[in-house]
Amino acid sequence: MRGRNEPLGAELVSRDAWKGRDVISILDFSRRELESLFAAASEFVGPPKPRKDLADYIVATAFFEPSTRTRLSFTTAALRLGAKVIDLSPDVSSILKGESLHDTTMMLEGYSDLIVMRHPSEGAALLAAELASVPVVNGGDGSQHHPTQAMLDLFTVKRLKGKIDGLTYTVLGDNRYARSATSFLYGLTKFKPKMVYIVSPETLRPRDEVIKQLKGLGLRFEQRAELEQVIGNTDVLYLTRIQKERFPDPNEYEKVKGSYKLTKEVLAKGRSGMIVLHPLPRSTELPYEIDSEKSSAYMTQAHLGVPLRMALLLKVIGGGRS
């Protein structure tokens, strides 16, 4: 689909040009486009009503890696809009016979009107988007991008804090391999946060290319080693688990395993009104005892995935085939 999307003129972009676009990185979208998405998603929050906007359309989900929330919320969103969903299961498809991403994508474009793809290789969604004539939505590619998660995270902040600008954010955890954290940081570059603290063990700091990108985009951020240094100033605490499955060397994982954990004692030092977000699934960094805290917002965040993705599907597919 990329060929049809590029180049997008500045006028088109500023006029909220979602229809027919691939969703590969949140960096591809303007603040105005994101705000328009959030406004549309707000319309879908609350008790669902039967809709037929996408009744003539088929959405394909192709998850080459495990997923609970992204896959199910996309499926739910499509079904709530009246679309039909087909699902590629790598463990029972020709991928087991060695079928390439190229050929798999060429099949999916022939069977569906939009492809939601998750893949362990960085750049897989971009490659699929270049091949397919239908829009491709990146549901996560390796440790690189997870754009719809970042859109959801920012939407949650907007819903719960009333604004995204002017807040202090702390992004704690695996900032090297967690694509959710990277995409959230990229998403913040579209807004005007007061300050962003990036807190992680030394080996889990953001990759060089990410730091370079954040600096280039003018994000005001500082890297810190301890959460306690910054929690008193934090409005939004964004937490990720250590991505065990992405460590090239298991010994490196063992060195950092359990190296950070949110406790009630640390949380008590936080500023009033602070919210805690987590893309889930969690590990030991987020004990269940935190769930009952007033600041915990990650279940709300997960539930908002459906309205956010309903709005996204509707904007990208457009609705009304004629």
Binding site: S100, L101, H102, D103, P120, S121, L126, G142, P248
Partner: peptide, 13 residues
Amino acid sequence: APTCVSVREKDSA
């Protein structure tokens, strides 16, 4: 990057 799609799918990418 060993996990880059251009490495893993080099025949088609």
